[in-house]
């Protein structure tokens, strides 16, 4: 398949890098300022070298990449809330041209799910968004495989930054600010970590799962989620939990009835108590008990793996 990538962050770069291994070629790529287009397939190394040297991927304007001939648009621009632009327009414009879209960007699916699905119904193209939830973990496709009606709840640890901080606080008896600074030094937390530590990122992922679980019967957005972050969790709470054989994790839960995200007490050695930046998604099924899938929930190659699996499902 011919892929056009919008967004040249860690995910966009990794998709560019790995596409060939999956038997696809990247024929267009765009960041916010520039684009490169080659119907015979771009050379990933040259594109990345130019981006690193000049801050541009090529000499064309982004619009040319969006208008180019491709089979699948890979939407990997940063997640934005509210109107979810420019991601939302990238998706709808591709669907209007009857192209497929694979998203790594959570914004359009979490904030404007109904509109996206309507645009898809009017199109010969399809949308897929495995990469929006839990990085390499196949969360969305598992719900689709089982059928949303056979899954009553999806919950888990869906933010590696928050999980890293809570794991370190519990293990080392350190306070939040100390561990956050350490996480920032290690590149695990961003300079502005609020999206992760306030629970917004985990909530968006749960909103997406709630939308898939409800099968369009009810539409959820971030505004429908009950969200509490981890900034106010002191070391004393973790030590009290530990005395009781428990620990604290930022757990998000999605059902057909809604989304809740917050710090929760869980058994210290239980399934949900994954360590460090690891993620886990746990499904309650109607006839098969509980299903757990854990793995790497973020990162360029990990998320690109989910993107390229989606591209494979479109073939």
């Amino acid at each position: 398949m011919k892929l056009a990538i919008v967004g040249v962050g860690a995910v966009g770069r990794s998709v560019l890098d790995l596409a060939r291994e999956y038997g696809h070629s990247v024929t267009a790529i765009a960041d916010s300022e520039s684009a490169a287009v080659d119907s015979a397939g771009l050379d990933p190394e040259r594109v990345i070298a130019r981006k690193d040297d000049e801050g541009r991927v090529g000499s064309r304007v982004p619009e040319e990449a969006l208008k180019s001939e491709y089979d699948v648009l890979i939407e990997a621009t940063p997640t934005t809330l509210g109107d979810a632009e420019p991601g939302f327009s990238h998706v709808t414009r591709a669907l209007e041209r009857d192209r497929h879209v694979v998203l790594a960007n959570k914004g359009p699916i979490a904030e404007r799910y109904g509109e996206i699905r309507r645009a898809e119904r009017a199109s010969a193209g399809e949308i897929r968004f495995e990469a929006t939830v839990g990085g390499a973990i196949p969360a969305i496709s598992t719900i689709e495989d089982f059928g949303p009606e056979h899954i009553t709840a999806a919950r888990g640890v869906l933010n590696g930054t928050a999980n890293f901080i809570l794991t370190r606080m519990a293990a080392e008896g350190l306070d939040y600010d100390h561990v956050l600074a350490e996480a920032q030094d290690l590149g695990v937390a961003e300079a502005n970590p609020s999206f992760d530590v306030q629970g917004t990122d985990a909530a968006l992922k749960c909103v997406i799962m709630a939308n898939v679980l409800s099968g369009g019967e009810r539409e959820f957005t971030l505004a429908d989620a009950e969200v509490e972050g981890i900034e106010d969790v002191p070391g004393s709470a973790l030590s009290l939990a530990s005395e009781d054989g428990r620990t604290v994790r930022l757990i998000g839960e999605a059902t057909r009835d809604g989304v809740r995200v917050g710090p929760r007490l869980i058994p210290e050695n239980g399934t949900l108590a994954v360590s460090g930046t690891r993620n886990i998604v746990q499904f309650e099924t109607t006839h098969a008990g509980r299903l757990n899938i854990s793995g790497r929930g973020a990162g360029g190659p990990e998320t690109a793996t989910a993107v390229l699996s989606d591209v494979g499902r479109l073939e």
Partner: peptide, 10 residues
Amino acid sequence: IEPQLDRETA
């Protein structure tokens, strides 16, 4: 900080 309600096995 609420407990995650469903009991889980190790």
